[in-house]
Write a protein that binds this DNA or RNA. Structure first.
Lengths: 352, 352
DNA sequence: ATTAGCACTCAGAGAGAGTGAGTGCTAACA
DNA sequence: TGTTAGCACTCACTCTCTCTGAGTGCTAAT
C-alpha cells in the first residue's frame, strides 16, 4: 500500500490534530506556522490544508474559521500513534503499585481500575467484571428458591463471589440439589468452572443416573454469562468539563444513555480476540456516541480473555495517552487478577 | 403557638411558592393578582409581599424583579402540605402493581423502586438495600479466604444474597468454620439473623467449647452492617433539566459529589425512628446540597426499619408530590419486602 | 384597609459597529 | 515549479447602546 499522504501533509495533519485535541478550537494556518516543528509560511500551509480538506481529512465550520480534523483524520492519526503510545516507566509503575495495593477482592480491584482509568485520563471509564469461566471453584451452593428455580452462589479464589439464578429442570428435587453441591464441593474445588461441567458429568451419572444430563445443562449457564455481568462506571461527570458538552441538553442525553446501561452491550462487546479497538465518532453504532470515541481493551486471566474495559471521551480525546494507559492497565489488571484467581487451590484454609 | 401569619399572608405565600415551584422565575404582584384564588389588586399584594420580605419569607434577586421564596418559606410550606400530600388511588395502585411484578429478587425490587421514584418525580432517587438483621436465614457458607479472613455468604429468603468479609479470630481453623456453617444450616435455617447469634451460642459451646465466644463475636458483624450496604441511584441526569443547573460547572460538581458517594452517609442517615425527614437547602450538612432539598423516608420489614430511600431535587422541588410518592413507595416497598423476607421458612425446597 | 396612579429600577433582548482570526487568490520570487 | 508575500474578503464574537417590559415603592384618593 503506497503512502496515502506525503510526509509534509502528514506532519501538518498531525499538528492540526494535536492542536485541536488540546484546544478544541479550529486550527488556523498562522497558528501552525508558529510551531517549531513546522517551518513553512502560513500561505504554504494554507495550500496544504486546502488539499487536505479536499481529501476529506479536514473540515471547516465556516469560511473564516480554521480547520478541524474529520473522523478520517483521527483514524489516520490513531493508526500512527498506536505503536508509539507508551507510558513512562514511572507512570506504569504508579498504576501497577496502586492496583496491587487492593489485592484483597476482585470487585475492589475492578473498581480501582475504573477509578484510575478515569482519574488519569479525565474521561469516562467502564470496566467489566471478569468472566467466571476460568476462575477456580472454591465453593458452590445450590439453594432452592422457588419451584423451578435455584440460586447458585459461586465463590472462587480470593473471595470473588457471584450468584446466578438457575432454572431447575423438572424432576430435580431439593435433595438432588443438595447432593450435587456437596459433590461439587468435595470433589471439584480447585477446578476451573469450565472444566467443572465435564468432570462432574460422570460423577453425576453415578449419583443421580438418568437426570445427570439435564443437571449438566442447567450448570452450563454457570460458565456462560447468564447472570448479566456487572461493570463499574466512573467519571461520567468528567464529560461536563469538555466544551463539547457545554450544551446541557447534550450532556443530559449522554448521561441518561449511560445510566440506561444499553451502551455497555456495544462498548464492551467482546471483539473476540482483538486486543484493542478504537471506535471513532459515528463508527459507534449508538447514535448517542456519535461525538465520542470509545477505546476498548480486553484483559486476561492466564492468557485468556475474561473481560474488557473502555474509556469514553470526546472524539478529540487524547488518543495517545488513552491508548497507553489502557494498554498498561490491561497488562496490570491481567497480572493482578491472574495472581489472584489462578493461585493453586489451597487445601481449604490455613490452620495455625 | 399562635398563628405565625394571618390567613391572607399565608395564601399569598403559598401561591408564590406554588408558582415558583412551577416556573423557577421570580413571582410578581400582577401575576398573583391574576390568579383566581387571590382576589386582590397588585398594590395590596405588593404591600403584603413587602411585609413577607421583612419577615424573612421572601427574597428579592434585585429591585425590579419579583420575589422568590426563602428557605424559611419552604419550611412553612412543607409543614402545611405534609398532611394533605396524597396520591390518587390510581397512582398508588400503579406503584403497588409495578413493584409487585418484580417480586423475584430483593435487589431487583430495590432497583425498581429507585427507578420508579425518579421516573415519577423526575428528580434523583436513592434507595438503600435493606438491612439484613431481620431477614430469615436460608443458607450460609463460611469460606476461608486467607489466614485470618473468611467470606460469609448469606442467602436469605427469596434469593437475597450478601457476602461479608469476616475477621477470623486466631485459633479458629478452617475445620471449625466448616463445622459452624453446617451447624447453622442444619439447625438455624429460618431464623432471623439477629436471633441466630444467641441461638447459636449454646450449640457452639457443645461443639467447639471455649472458642464459642470469639466465634459469636465474629458472627455479630453479620447482623450489623459491616459490609457497607449498597444503594441504587437513579436519575442523576434529571437534575440537568432544571434551570438551577443550567450552569454546567454547578451540575458537574453535583454529579461528582454523587459519584463520590459521600452524600449517602448523610442522606440516608437512619434518623432513628423518624418516619420522614425533609431537609431544605442549607439544612443539609453537605455544602454541595445547599441548593437542593432532600426528602428521606424509611421503609420497614415486619414493622421494623431496615432501610431508607430519598429523593434529591432543587429546593423548589414539588414537595407535595414527592412527599406523597415517597410515602406511598415506602408503604408499598415495606409490604413487598415483608412478604418476601418474612414468609415462613419453607422446608428446603419444593419436591415435585 | 384597599386601590389607582405614577415615577423609578433594572435584567434581558436586539441592533450595530468594530475586531481579529481566518481564508482564497494572485503575482512575485528562488 | 514549489514557496511566499500581499491583499481583499468573510464571518463569528464581543462590546456598547438602546429599548422594552416586568416589577417595585410611594402617595393620594376611595
Amino acid at each position: 500500500m503506497t503512502q496515502l499522504l506525503d510526509v509534509r501533509k502528514m506532519n501538518i495533519l498531525r499538528a492540526i490534530v494535536d492542536d485541536y485535541i488540546l484546544t478544541a478550537a479550529p486550527v488556523g494556518s498562522r497558528t501552525l506556522s508558529k510551531r517549531e516543528d513546522i517551518e513553512l509560511s502560513p500561505a504554504t500551509i494554507r495550500n496544504e490544508m486546502s488539499d487536505l480538506t479536499e481529501l476529506g481529512f479536514l473540515e471547516q465550520p465556516h469560511t473564516s474559521a480554521g480547520r478541524i480534523p474529520s473522523e478520517k483524520a483521527y483514524r489516520l492519526y490513531v493508526s500512527n500513534i498506536m505503536d508509539r503510545a507508551k507510558l513512562t516507566d514511572e507512570e506504569a509503575e504508579y498504576i501497577r503499585a496502586h492496583l496491587e495495593r487492593r489485592v484483597s477482592e476482585v470487585g475492589e480491584v475492578i473498581k480501582e481500575t475504573a477509578r484510575m482509568l478515569s482519574g488519569i485520563t479525565k474521561y469516562t471509564s467502564i470496566v467489566q467484571m471478569p468472566h467466571l469461566k476460568n476462575a477456580r471453584l472454591k465453593h458452590i451452593s445450590l439453594i432452592p428458591v422457588t419451584t423451578g428455580t435455584a440460586l447458585a452462589v459461586i465463590v472462587t479464589n480470593s473471595g470473588y463471589t457471584n450468584s446466578i439464578m438457575l432454572d431447575v429442570p423438572s424432576g430435580i428435587t431439593a435433595g438432588h440439589l443438595e447432593k450435587i453441591s456437596s459433590l461439587m464441593n468435595e470433589r471439584l474445588a480447585g477446578y476451573k468452572l469450565v472444566d467443572v461441567q465435564k468432570t462432574l458429568l460422570p460423577l453425576l451419572r453415578e449419583e443421580i443416573g438418568e437426570q445427570a444430563d439435564s443437571v449438566a445443562a442447567m450448570l452450563s449457564s454457570l460458565s456462560e454469562d447468564k447472570g448479566r455481568r456487572g461493570y463499574e462506571v466512573v467519571g461520567a461527570a468528567n464529560m461536563l468539563d469538555y466544551p463539547e458538552y457545554a450544551d446541557v441538553s447534550k450532556a443530559r442525553s449522554f448521561l441518561s444513555e449511560l445510566e440506561r446501561g444499553e451502551i455497555f452491550k456495544e462498548v464492551l462487546s467482546d471483539g473476540s480476540g482483538v486486543e484493542m479497538t478504537v471506535r471513532i465518532g459515528t463508527e459507534n453504532d449508538n447514535p448517542e456516541l456519535k461525538d465520542c470515541s470509545v477505546i476498548t481493551v480486553s484483559y486476561r486471566v492466564g492468557g485468556e480473555q475474561v473481560g474488557s474495559m473502555a474509556v469514553i471521551g470526546p472524539t478529540r480525546m487524547d488518543y495517545e495517552k488513552v491508548v497507553a494507559v489502557l494498554r498498561c492497565m490491561s497488562e496490570s489488571l491481567s497480572n493482578v487478577l491472574s495472581g489472584m484467581l489462578l493461585s493453586e487451590p489451597d487445601a481449604g484454609g490455613s490452620d495455625k
